[in-house]
C-alpha cells in the first residue's frame, strides 16, 4: 500500500507545480529569445555568431546538471530502494541526452565559423561526447534487461560510475591545452562576459531550467503510470479471477 501512497502524493504535487512552471517557461523563453536576438550587441571578435552561445552554453550546463540529478536519483534508488527515485532517473535520461546532443551540435555549428573546424578531439569535446554515451548507455541498460528491478540497478550503477566524468568536463579546459575557451560565467574572479550579453545567456539558461522542470514532471507522471500498468498486469497474471 505504501508503494502507492508516495506516487499519488507526487502526482498531486506535480499537478500543482506544472501550470506555474509552464507559465514561467513561456515567459523566460520569450524574454530570452528577445534579448538574444534584439537586445544584445554582436561580439567585438565573433560578430553575430556569438548568438549561438545563448543556446550552446545553457544546453551544456543542463547536460551536466541533469546528469547530477540522475546520479542523485540513482544513489537514492540503490541505497534506500526508493521506488520513485528509480523512476526519476528514468525520467531524466532522455532530457539529459537531448541537451548533451544539443550542446555538441550547436558547438559544432559555432566552432566551424569561429575556430575553423567542426570538431577536434580535445579534452572538453571528448568528455562531453562521453557524457552523451553515458546517457545512451543508461537508457540502453533499462531496455536490454528484462527484469525491471535488475535493469534499474544496473543502470543506476552505470549512472554513478559516470559521475567521475562531470569534474573532468568542468576542468578539462583548465587541466589540458584545448581549443575550447575557458569558463566565462562560473569563475572565481567573476564573469568575463559583458552585462548586455550575460542577460540573454542567463535568461536562456533559466528558460531551459523551466523546460526541464515541465518535461521532467510530465515524464515522472508517465513513468508512474507505466509502473502502475506493470503492477496491474502482474496482478492479473497471478490472480486472474476475482482478485479483489
Amino acid at each position: 500500500m505504501h508503494r502507492f501512497a508516495n506516487p499519488a502524493q507526487f502526482n498531486r504535487l506535480a499537478d500543482a507545480i506544472l501550470p506555474w512552471a509552464i507559465g514561467a517557461m513561456v515567459l523566460l523563453f520569450a524574454a530570452g529569445l528577445y534579448t538574444a536576438f534584439f537586445a544584445s550587441p554582436p561580439d567585438y571578435q565573433q560578430g553575430e555568431s556569438v548568438r549561438v552561445m545563448y543556446i550552446h552554453a545553457p544546453a551544456a550546463w543542463m547536460a551536466m546538471f541533469i546528469y547530477m540529478v540522475m546520479a542523485v536519483a540513482s544513489f537514492t534508488a540503490l541505497v534506500w530502494r526508493h521506488p520513485l527515485a528509480l523512476l526519476a532517473g528514468r525520467a531524466t535520461a532522455p532530457l539529459g541526452a537531448m541537451f548533451t546532443a544539443l550542446a555538441l551540435l550547436t558547438g559544432m555549428l559555432w566552432g566551424k565559423p569561429m575556430w575553423g573546424t567542426y570538431w577536434v578531439w580535445d579534452g572538453r569535446l571528448t568528455s562531453v561526447l562521453i557524457l552523451f554515451f553515458l546517457y545512451l548507455g543508461y537508457m540502453a541498460l533499462w531496455q536490454s534487461v528484462e527484469d525491471e528491478e535488475k535493469a534499474g540497478r544496473a543502470a543506476s550503477i552505470l549512472a554513478l560510475v559516470g559521475v567521475v566524468n562531470i569534474p573532468i568536463i568542468k576542468f578539462s579546459v583548465d587541466w589540458w591545452s584545448t581549443l575550447h575557451q575557458p569558463a566565462s560565467v562560473i569563475r572565481l574572479d567573476g564573469p568575463t562576459i559583458d552585462g548586455s550579453m550575460l542577460l540573454p545567456l542567463l535568461l536562456m539558461a533559466a528558460a531551459y531550467q523551466a523546460y526541464f522542470i515541465v518535461v521532467f514532471l510530465w515524464r515522472m507522471k508517465l513513468e508512474i503510470n507505466r509502473r502502475k500498468l506493470a503492477v496491474a498486469r502482474q496482478a492479473m497474471m497471478h490472480a486472474p479471477v476475482g482478485a479483489e
Partner: peptide, 13 residues
Amino acid sequence: GGYAAFVWAAYGL
C-alpha cells in the same frame, strides 16, 4: 553578419 547558416541551424535544431 554572414553567419546565417550556422546561427539559424543551431537555433532550428
